[in-house]
Amino acid sequence: MIVQSLETVTLVGAGLATIAEIARCEALGPTLVAADGGAAHCLAADRMPDAVIGDMDSLGALAAQGIASERLHAIPEQDSTDFDKALRNITAPLVLGVGFCGARMDHQLACYNVLVRQPHKRCVLLGDTDVVFLAPPNLKLDLQPGTRVSLFPLGLVEGVSDGLKWPIAGLNFTPDGRIGTSNAALGPVEISVTGPKLLVILPRSELENVVQALLATPGAWPAL
């Protein structure tokens, strides 16, 4: 592992990310890591990343801005994204990703793919409107009534729920079949799922709530 932390880690990508968003994530995860070009966002926020991981196609520009060589960790293979390279080389209870949503839809979809392919890595992505994460085997969220709860499958998965306006028990979710967007909380919500295939999408205002819930949730998916 390139980065090992007992605390939550903030991972910054090269997509849309504001100084305020980086600061918000850092308040929850003080170790700062950049996925290649995400280092530019860190420097713009006057923050020096503890590590930069990726294929380093921006290496020249980053080195010129004073990032020490020992902080740069090049992984030159082109079979995976910089998000994938970074996430698989971080060991932490939770990773907060900012700068991976928006800008390009193909990059965003690729990040969702990585969440499912690396289910043992707990990671929450912060976007301009939502937070997205892979549902663990069991999840409890303390939500206010009316909070939007969207469930989107990236594979065949079933589950049960308590506290949702439209319960999911008995439903088979698939990307090309039934999905669960625009559900709503009646209050605290509990969801259990059969496999690491279901994305949970909540309003971005719930970031701190989600972090607290995931860190308090026992059990995790094994590595695939």
Rank of each mutant, 00 (worst) to 15 (best):
I2Y: 10
Q4W: 04
S5G: 04
T8L: 01
T10M: 06
G15K: 13
A20E: 15
C25G: 10
A27Y: 12
A27F: 07
V33E: 04
V33R: 03
V33I: 05
A35I: 00
G38D: 02
A40D: 09
C42A: 13
C42N: 03
A44V: 05
D46H: 14
R47G: 05
M48S: 09
P49A: 11
G54D: 08
D55S: 07
L59E: 13
G60K: 06
Q65I: 00
G66T: 01
I67R: 00
L72C: 10
H73G: 03
A74I: 13
T81M: 00
D84F: 13
A92P: 01
L94T: 05
V98P: 13
G102R: 13
A110P: 04
L115Y: 06
P119C: 12
R122E: 12
C123A: 12
L125I: 09
L125A: 06
L126V: 09
G127D: 11
V132M: 07
L139C: 01
K140E: 15
D142A: 04
D142N: 14
Q144H: 07
Q144C: 04
T147R: 13
R148H: 03
S150V: 05
L151K: 08
L154P: 10
V157Q: 03
G163T: 08
L164W: 05
K165M: 10
I168M: 13
N172Y: 03
N172V: 12
R178C: 05
A185K: 09
G187T: 04
S192Q: 15
K197S: 15
I201Y: 01
L202G: 02
P203W: 05
L207A: 01
Q212T: 14
A216N: 14
A216Q: 14
W221M: 10
